[in-house]
Nucleic acid binder design. Structure first.
Lengths: 144, 144
DNA sequence: TGTTGTTAGTTACAAAATCAACTGTTAATG
DNA sequence: CATTAACAGTTGATTTTGTAACTAACAACA
């Protein structure tokens, strides 16, 4: 395409990252949304608890960098669906430990395998070394 | 951290991409938002017109993959601020050509240099070959 | 030419994200 | 201890997004 300007939007990292993230998230969402009608925020909370086990909302926030109100609401919805339970920390009553129920763990296991498949599909678009480099660089970017 | 599960969320590409995209977009937004109080959608439309020149909303949609309602609203806001003008195509009266005004071009030029600086800052976190690989792979992912 | 389909863009309404203010609790310090 | 600050989490108001239905214009083709 003819450009009026030598700055290339397609090479601007934040833009490029967004395009790639949006593309892959939407494609992945299309795969899982029908099974559980789950939001991205709920999906994330579920995965955090499924992978790392019992933890507080605060810890989920530190790991995921999601805002606490998003987490609060996602937790409420997952609780409604009986996917998790809360337990007050008696030593520090501000804290609430969240833990998946049997149904929550089952949902996680199912979505986990969907995720693994999808990740493999994406990875197949690259050479193995490339995927490794990509993950490494993204990792680095994510914690700048 | 102790994991209960060998699946690693930090290596799951859609998640990783989102984290990296969110991180870099927010950081970039903090730099430019005070100058123009502009939304990400508006920023994108402005850049498309600044870089590629006069085009229709539809073309912006094809390039950016933003949904047409987002574009429609971003265009309306940019027009309110007198950053762009619309011109009806007389041959096909459904089409409207969008073009930056002087003020719009000035805003673009300013934000463009902010973007170039920020991109350089990000790139500095990597070796030059790494950045090239990263851009290539993201490019590829974005158009899967 | 008239009917049906398609396209560009907008709008109305519902869903979700953001921000600020709030509750209840613990920590810090005089 | 009493008061103030800090923290975990929730709620409410506002803003932004997403979905679907809509308008206006063009296209195809019987």
């Amino acid at each position: 395409m003819t450009k009026k300007d030598d700055f290339d939007l397609q090479d601007f990292l934040p833009y490029l990252l967004n395009q790639a993230a949006e593309e892959s998230s939407l494609a992945f969402q299309n795969i899982y949304k029908d099974r559980y009608g789950m939001l991205r925020t709920e999906w994330r909370v579920l995965f955090h608890l499924g992978i790392y086990g019992r933890m507080t909302a605060k810890e989920i926030g530190e790991r995921s960098k999601m805002h606490k109100t998003k987490i609060s609401r996602a937790v409420a919805r997952l609780e409604e669906r009986r996917f998790l339970t809360r337990e007050r920390d008696e030593a520090d009553r501000r804290l609430e430990y969240l833990e998946l129920t049997g149904a929550g763990r089952a949902a996680y296991q199912e979505l986990r395998s969907v995720a693994i498949d999808y990740d493999a599909t994406l990875a197949r678009a690259f050479a193995p070394e490339e995927v490794a480099v990509l993950r490494k660089l993204l990792h680095h970017l994510a914690k700048l």
